[in-house]
Amino acid sequence: VTTYKLVINGKTLKGETTTKAVDAETAEKAFKQYANDNGVDGVWTYDDATKTFTVTEMV
Score class of each variant (00 low, 15 high):
Val1Cys: 05
Val1Leu: 09
Val1Gly: 08
Val1Ile: 08
Val1Glu: 09
Thr2Phe: 07
Thr2Gly: 06
Thr2His: 07
Thr2Cys: 05
Thr2Trp: 10
Thr2Leu: 12
Thr3Gln: 12
Thr3Trp: 07
Tyr4Arg: 00
Tyr4Ile: 01
Tyr4Phe: 12
Tyr4Leu: 00
Tyr4Lys: 00
Tyr4Glu: 00
Lys5Leu: 14
Lys5Asp: 02
Lys5Met: 07
Lys5His: 08
Lys5Gln: 05
Lys5Gly: 04
Leu6Ser: 01
Leu6Tyr: 01
Leu6Lys: 00
Leu6Ile: 03
Leu6Asp: 00
Leu6Met: 04
Leu6Pro: 00
Leu6Trp: 02
Leu6Arg: 00
Leu6His: 00
Val7Lys: 10
Val7Gly: 02
Val7Glu: 05
Val7Asp: 03
Val7Phe: 10
Ile8Glu: 01
Ile8Asn: 01
Ile8Thr: 04
Ile8Phe: 14
Ile8Ser: 03
Asn9Tyr: 07
Asn9Cys: 05
Asn9Glu: 09
Gly10Arg: 04
Gly10Lys: 05
Gly10Pro: 03
Gly10Glu: 03
Gly10Ser: 14
Lys11Val: 11
Lys11Cys: 05
Lys11Pro: 15
Lys11Tyr: 15
Lys11Asp: 12
Thr12Asn: 13
Thr12Tyr: 14
Thr12Leu: 15
Thr12Ile: 15
Thr12Trp: 08
Thr12Val: 15
Leu13Asn: 13
Leu13Glu: 13
Leu13Ala: 04
Leu13His: 09
Lys14Thr: 11
Lys14Ile: 13
Gly15Cys: 07
Gly15Trp: 15
Glu16Ala: 03
Glu16Val: 03
Glu16Thr: 06
Glu16Leu: 03
Glu16Lys: 04
Glu16Asp: 05
Thr17Cys: 08
Thr17Glu: 06
Thr17His: 15
Thr17Lys: 15
Thr17Asp: 04
Thr17Asn: 09
Thr17Ala: 13
Thr18Asp: 14
Thr18Ile: 10
Thr18Cys: 06
Thr19Pro: 01
Thr19Ile: 09
Thr19Trp: 07
Thr19Cys: 05
Thr19Met: 12
Thr19Arg: 07
Lys20Pro: 11
Lys20Cys: 05
Ala21Val: 06
Ala21Ile: 03
Ala21Pro: 01
Val22Pro: 15
Val22Gly: 11
Val22Trp: 08
Val22Met: 10
Asp23Tyr: 07
Asp23Leu: 07
Asp23Asn: 10
Ala24Asn: 08
Ala24Asp: 09
Glu25Phe: 06
Glu25Thr: 09
Glu25Leu: 12
Glu25Met: 09
Glu25Ser: 14
Glu25Ala: 13
Thr26Pro: 02
Thr26Ser: 10
Thr26Met: 12
Thr26Trp: 08
Thr26Gly: 11
Thr26Arg: 07
Ala27Cys: 02
Ala27Glu: 00
Ala27His: 00
Ala27Met: 01
Ala27Val: 03
Glu28Pro: 00
Glu28Gly: 10
Glu28Thr: 10
Glu28Lys: 15
Lys29Asp: 12
Lys29Gln: 13
Lys29Val: 09
Lys29Ile: 13
Ala30Cys: 06
Ala30Ile: 15
Ala30Ser: 15
Ala30Trp: 15
Ala30Lys: 07
Ala30Thr: 10
Ala30Phe: 12
Phe31Gln: 00
Phe31Asn: 00
Phe31His: 02
Lys32Ala: 08
Lys32Gln: 08
Lys32Trp: 05
Lys32Asp: 02
Lys32Asn: 06
Gln33Cys: 05
Gln33Pro: 02
Gln33His: 12
Tyr34Pro: 00
Ala35Asp: 01
Ala35Glu: 01
Ala35Tyr: 03
Ala35Leu: 07
Ala35Ile: 13
Ala35Gln: 02
Asn36Trp: 08
Asn36Ile: 12
Asn36Ser: 13
Asn36Leu: 09
Asp37His: 09
Asp37Trp: 06
Asp37Phe: 13
Asp37Leu: 09
Asp37Ala: 08
Asp37Pro: 02
Asp37Asn: 11
Asn38Gln: 13
Asn38Ile: 06
Asn38Ala: 07
Asn38Tyr: 13
Asn38Phe: 10
Asn38Met: 15
Asn38Trp: 13
Gly39Cys: 05
Gly39Gln: 12
Gly39Pro: 02
Gly39Phe: 14
Gly39Met: 13
Gly39Asp: 14
Gly39His: 12
Val40Met: 06
Val40Phe: 09
Asp41Leu: 14
Asp41Tyr: 09
Asp41Phe: 10
Asp41Glu: 05
Asp41Ser: 08
Asp41Ala: 07
Asp41Lys: 07
Asp41Asn: 06
Gly42Ala: 02
Gly42Ser: 01
Gly42Met: 02
Gly42Val: 01
Gly42His: 02
Val43Phe: 14
Val43Asp: 09
Trp44Glu: 00
Trp44Lys: 00
Trp44Gln: 01
Trp44Asn: 00
Trp44His: 01
Trp44Met: 05
Thr45Cys: 04
Thr45Pro: 00
Thr45Phe: 09
Tyr46Met: 02
Asp47Ser: 07
Asp47Arg: 03
Asp47Gln: 05
Asp47Cys: 05
Asp47Val: 10
Asp47Pro: 00
Asp47Glu: 08
Asp48Val: 12
Asp48His: 12
Asp48Gln: 09
Asp48Leu: 07
Ala49Ile: 14
Ala49Trp: 12
Thr50Tyr: 08
Thr50Arg: 07
Thr50Cys: 04
Lys51Trp: 07
Lys51Pro: 00
Lys51Val: 05
Lys51Leu: 11
Lys51Gly: 05
Lys51Arg: 15
Thr52Leu: 06
Thr52Ser: 07
Thr52Glu: 06
Thr52Gln: 10
Thr52Arg: 04
Phe53Asp: 00
Phe53Met: 02
Phe53Gln: 00
Phe53His: 02
Phe53Glu: 00
Thr54Cys: 04
Thr54Ser: 05
Thr54Lys: 06
Thr54Asn: 04
Thr54Gly: 03
Val55Lys: 01
Val55Trp: 02
Val55Gln: 01
Val55Phe: 04
Val55Ile: 06
Val55Cys: 04
Val55Asn: 01
Val55Gly: 00
Val55Met: 07
Thr56Glu: 08
Thr56Arg: 07
Thr56Gln: 09
Thr56Phe: 06
Thr56Met: 05
Thr56Tyr: 08
Thr56His: 13
Thr56Pro: 01
Thr56Lys: 06
Glu57Arg: 02
Glu57Gly: 03
Glu57Pro: 03
Glu57Tyr: 05
Glu57Ile: 04
Glu57Leu: 03
Met58Val: 11
Met58Ile: 13
Met58His: 11
Met58Glu: 10
Val59Ala: 12
Val59Met: 09
Val59Ile: 13
